[in-house]
Protein backbone atom coordinates (compact mmCIF):
# COMPACT_ATOMS: atom_id res chain seq x y z
CA UNK A 1 0.00 0.00 0.00
CA UNK A 2 1.36 3.42 -0.95
CA UNK A 3 0.07 6.91 -0.43
CA UNK A 4 -0.04 8.73 -3.73
CA UNK A 5 -0.78 12.32 -4.53
CA UNK A 6 -1.77 13.70 -7.91
CA UNK A 7 -3.49 16.68 -9.47
CA UNK A 8 -6.99 15.73 -10.56
CA UNK A 9 -9.06 18.33 -12.38
CA UNK A 10 -6.75 21.04 -11.04
CA UNK A 11 -6.90 19.97 -7.39
CA UNK A 12 -4.34 18.03 -5.40
CA UNK A 13 -5.84 14.72 -4.34
CA UNK A 14 -4.21 11.92 -2.41
CA UNK A 15 -5.09 8.46 -1.20
CA UNK A 16 -3.90 4.93 -0.48
CA UNK A 17 -3.34 2.58 -3.40
CA UNK A 18 -2.06 -0.96 -3.64
CA UNK A 19 0.57 -1.47 -6.28
CA UNK A 20 -2.00 -3.39 -8.33
CA UNK A 21 -4.81 -0.83 -7.98
CA UNK A 22 -5.92 0.39 -11.38
CA UNK A 23 -6.16 4.12 -11.93
CA UNK A 24 -9.84 3.78 -12.82
CA UNK A 25 -10.58 2.11 -9.49
CA UNK A 26 -8.53 4.70 -7.61
CA UNK A 27 -10.47 7.52 -9.28
CA UNK A 28 -13.82 5.87 -8.73
CA UNK A 29 -13.54 4.07 -5.41
CA UNK A 30 -10.97 6.16 -3.52
CA UNK A 31 -11.52 9.66 -4.90
CA UNK A 32 -15.21 8.89 -5.64
CA UNK A 33 -15.03 10.51 -9.08
CA UNK A 34 -17.54 8.14 -10.66
CA UNK A 35 -17.94 9.87 -14.00
CA UNK A 36 -15.17 7.66 -15.40
CA UNK A 37 -16.78 4.31 -16.21
CA UNK A 38 -15.70 0.68 -16.38
CA UNK A 39 -16.87 -1.36 -19.36
CA UNK A 40 -14.30 -4.08 -19.97
CA UNK A 41 -11.17 -3.50 -17.81
CA UNK A 42 -8.97 -4.74 -20.63
CA UNK A 43 -8.49 -1.55 -22.61
CA UNK A 44 -10.93 -2.20 -25.40
CA UNK A 45 -14.15 -0.28 -24.70
CA UNK A 46 -12.71 3.11 -23.77
CA UNK A 47 -15.41 4.02 -21.21
CA UNK A 48 -12.65 4.75 -18.68
CA UNK A 49 -10.67 7.20 -20.84
CA UNK A 50 -9.08 10.13 -18.94
CA UNK A 51 -6.34 12.63 -19.68
CA UNK A 52 -3.02 11.70 -18.09
CA UNK A 53 -0.28 14.33 -18.39
CA UNK A 54 -1.98 15.86 -21.40
CA UNK A 55 -2.83 12.75 -23.40
CA UNK A 56 -5.90 10.51 -23.37
CA UNK A 57 -5.39 7.11 -21.78
CA UNK A 58 -7.58 4.19 -20.81
CA UNK A 59 -7.42 4.36 -17.05
CA UNK A 60 -7.95 0.60 -16.68
CA UNK A 61 -4.55 0.14 -18.35
CA UNK A 62 -2.66 2.28 -15.85
CA UNK A 63 -1.80 1.49 -12.24
CA UNK A 64 -2.70 4.28 -9.86
CA UNK A 65 0.85 4.36 -8.45
CA UNK A 66 2.17 5.21 -11.92
CA UNK A 67 0.35 8.53 -11.72
CA UNK A 68 1.87 9.71 -8.43
CA UNK A 69 2.74 13.37 -8.83
CA UNK A 70 1.08 13.58 -12.23
CA UNK A 71 -1.83 15.46 -13.70
CA UNK A 72 -5.12 13.75 -14.52
CA UNK A 73 -8.27 15.27 -15.99
CA UNK A 74 -11.56 13.38 -15.84
CA UNK A 75 -14.97 14.17 -17.32
CA UNK A 76 -15.83 16.01 -14.11
CA UNK A 77 -13.07 18.48 -14.99
CA UNK A 78 -14.46 19.57 -18.35
CA UNK A 79 -17.13 22.03 -17.23
CA UNK A 80 -15.79 25.24 -15.68
CA UNK A 81 -17.76 27.50 -13.35
CA UNK A 82 -20.91 25.47 -14.10
CA UNK A 83 -20.54 26.25 -17.80
CA UNK A 84 -20.43 23.26 -20.10
CA UNK A 85 -17.32 22.71 -22.19
CA UNK A 86 -17.99 23.19 -25.93
CA UNK A 87 -17.64 19.43 -26.40
CA UNK A 88 -20.31 18.77 -23.79
CA UNK A 89 -22.59 21.35 -25.43
CA UNK A 90 -22.03 19.79 -28.83
CA UNK A 91 -22.70 16.25 -27.58
CA UNK A 92 -25.98 17.50 -26.15
CA UNK A 93 -26.99 19.51 -29.21
CA UNK A 94 -26.13 16.78 -31.73
CA UNK A 95 -27.84 14.02 -29.70
CA UNK A 96 -24.57 12.11 -29.35
CA UNK A 97 -25.76 10.40 -26.16
CA UNK A 98 -28.30 7.70 -25.40
CA UNK A 99 -27.61 5.58 -22.31
CA UNK A 100 -24.66 7.81 -21.39
CA UNK A 101 -22.32 5.04 -20.26
CA UNK A 102 -19.66 5.45 -22.95
CA UNK A 103 -20.07 9.24 -23.02
CA UNK A 104 -17.37 10.29 -20.51
CA UNK A 105 -14.77 8.19 -22.33
CA UNK A 106 -15.85 9.55 -25.70
CA UNK A 107 -15.64 13.10 -24.40
CA UNK A 108 -12.15 12.58 -23.00
CA UNK A 109 -10.85 10.99 -26.21
CA UNK A 110 -12.31 13.90 -28.15
CA UNK A 111 -10.84 16.36 -25.62
CA UNK A 112 -7.43 14.78 -26.19
CA UNK A 113 -7.85 15.26 -29.92
CA UNK A 114 -8.93 18.88 -29.71
CA UNK A 115 -6.53 19.97 -27.00
CA UNK A 116 -3.72 20.55 -29.51
CA UNK A 117 -5.82 23.42 -30.92
CA UNK A 118 -5.85 22.19 -34.51
CA UNK A 119 -9.00 21.52 -36.50
CA UNK A 120 -9.08 17.78 -37.07
CA UNK A 121 -10.09 16.04 -40.27
CA UNK A 122 -12.97 13.57 -40.29
CA UNK A 123 -10.43 10.75 -40.41
CA UNK A 124 -8.59 12.18 -37.40
CA UNK A 125 -11.85 12.40 -35.44
CA UNK A 126 -12.64 8.78 -36.23
CA UNK A 127 -9.16 7.65 -35.34
CA UNK A 128 -9.31 9.51 -32.03
CA UNK A 129 -12.46 7.68 -30.91
CA UNK A 130 -11.81 4.36 -32.65
CA UNK A 131 -10.88 2.88 -29.28
CA UNK A 132 -14.17 3.94 -27.71
CA UNK A 133 -17.16 1.65 -28.14
CA UNK A 134 -20.73 2.90 -28.19
CA UNK A 135 -23.58 0.45 -28.59
CA UNK A 136 -26.45 2.96 -28.66
CA UNK A 137 -25.87 5.77 -31.12
CA UNK A 138 -24.06 4.22 -34.07
CA UNK A 139 -21.32 6.92 -33.73
CA UNK A 140 -22.60 9.28 -36.45
CA UNK A 141 -23.83 11.94 -34.04
CA UNK A 142 -20.69 11.63 -31.92
CA UNK A 143 -18.49 12.41 -34.92
CA UNK A 144 -20.81 15.30 -35.82
CA UNK A 145 -20.59 16.65 -32.28
CA UNK A 146 -16.79 16.56 -32.21
CA UNK A 147 -16.71 18.28 -35.60
CA UNK A 148 -19.06 20.96 -34.29
CA UNK A 149 -16.99 21.50 -31.18
CA UNK A 150 -13.83 21.75 -33.23
CA UNK A 151 -15.23 24.80 -34.98
CA UNK A 152 -15.29 25.22 -38.71
CA UNK A 153 -14.43 21.94 -40.24
CA UNK A 154 -12.80 21.77 -43.64
Amino acid sequence: MANISLTVNGETRSGEAESRTLLVHFLRDTLRLTGTHVGCVVGRCGACTVMWNGAPVKSCMVFAVQTDGDEVVTVEGLARDKRLHPLQEAFWKKDAVECGYCTPGMLMSAYGLLSNGKTPTEAEIKKAISGNLCRCTGYGNIVAAIREAAGNFK
Binding site: G35, V75, E76, F91, W92, V97, C99, G100
Partner: peptide, 15 residues
Protein backbone atom coordinates in the same frame (compact mmCIF):
# COMPACT_ATOMS: atom_id res chain seq x y z
CA UNK B 1 -33.02 18.18 -26.87
CA UNK B 2 -33.01 15.31 -24.39
CA UNK B 3 -33.34 16.24 -20.73
CA UNK B 4 -31.27 13.28 -19.53
CA UNK B 5 -28.24 14.13 -21.66
CA UNK B 6 -27.03 16.91 -19.38
CA UNK B 7 -26.08 14.62 -16.50
CA UNK B 8 -24.37 12.17 -18.85
CA UNK B 9 -22.08 14.75 -20.44
CA UNK B 10 -21.04 16.07 -17.05
CA UNK B 11 -20.29 12.65 -15.58
CA UNK B 12 -23.01 13.05 -12.97
CA UNK B 13 -25.20 10.21 -14.17
CA UNK B 14 -25.68 7.62 -11.42
CA UNK B 15 -25.16 4.00 -12.40
Amino acid sequence: RRKETQRFVTGTGRF
